[in-house]
Design a protein around this nucleic acid. Structure first.
Length: 230
DNA sequence: CGCTTTTGACCCGCGC
DNA sequence: GCGCGGGTCAAAAGCG
């Protein structure tokens, strides 16, 4: 499911980059005349708000509020190399380096959420130059190959707001023998995505087009988000 | 014994 | 130049 979501996000990002390019052109054009309306200001703020490819990935993981370990099982082996108490958050921030490969530049910072002690925030820097461990994060692709319909159901649920994502994903994921922490991570990842107004706006457009334009997909067997055709 | 964690010291960029 | 704060280093301790 993570792979599917990653592909969808890639499609969405490329689509948004196209939109951003056009909006930047509009802003530049309006600035050429020395004018910047409130509307333009809002658009620029939104452009700056949307995460770019260079922005470090943040993952929100739900844990027990009393759990002080700051450990996030994400399939890689991490070696802790530092811990600091930061000014804006009483919870200590832990620094980890990937220990699966000696030359791997990947790093991450883990800190409890300022507002919710039961949520820890992992900020990833750099990319891994090696594969993921099968031992610590067993591939679920064998059980998720037929997950298109559940993916569609989950996204529909998000959009309809009739049921919390936690409930449906937890049921689906537990049935497919995910570990507890992994399905929590997926929940938080999906939750963070749907809190992004840009993400949901484009997602709604794409899914609406898919539903209305492709009647044969009414059973949600294929969530086609090929936005480049829009 | 080898790897990981802990933790105080150090480095360095940034704002004033 | 100085102080602050985030990030990193490295020695010691812990652990299997």
């Amino acid at each position: 499911m993570l792979e599917v979501m990653k592909i969808k996000c890639t499609n969405l990002e490329s689509h948004l980059q196209e939109i951003n390019k056009e909006e930047h052109k509009e802003i530049i054009n309006s600035n050429q005349f020395g004018l910047l309306s409130n509307f333009d200001t809002r658009k620029r703020a939104r452009l700056e708000h949307f995460p770019t490819a260079k922005k470090p990935l943040q993952v929100f993981v739900k844990t027990h509020p009393n759990d002080e370990s700051l450990m996030v099982k994400d399939g890689y082996q991490w070696r802790k190399y530092g811990q600091k108490v930061t000014k804006d958050n009483a919870s200590p921030r832990a620094y980890f380096r990937c220990s699966m490969a000696p030359s791997c530049p990947a790093k991450k910072k883990v800190q409890k959420s300022l507002h919710d002690k039961s949520i820890i925030v992992a900020t990833y820097d750099g990319e891994h130059n090696h594969g993921v461990s099968n031992d610590s994060f067993k591939s679920s692709s064998s059980t998720l190959n037929d997950s298109s319909i559940s993916t569609y159901n989950k996204l529909s649920t998000i959009l309809n707001g009739k049921e919390t994502i936690n409930t449906r994903i937890r049921d689906n994921v537990k049935q497919q023998q995910f570990g507890y922490e992994k399905h929590i991570m997926i929940e938080e990842y999906a939750s963070s995505l749907i809190k992004d107004p840009d993400f949901t706006t484009v997602l709604v457009k794409a899914i609406a087009k898919t539903i209305t334009g492709q009647e044969h997909m009414r059973q949600g067997l294929n969530l086609n988000l090929n936005l480049s055709e829009e």
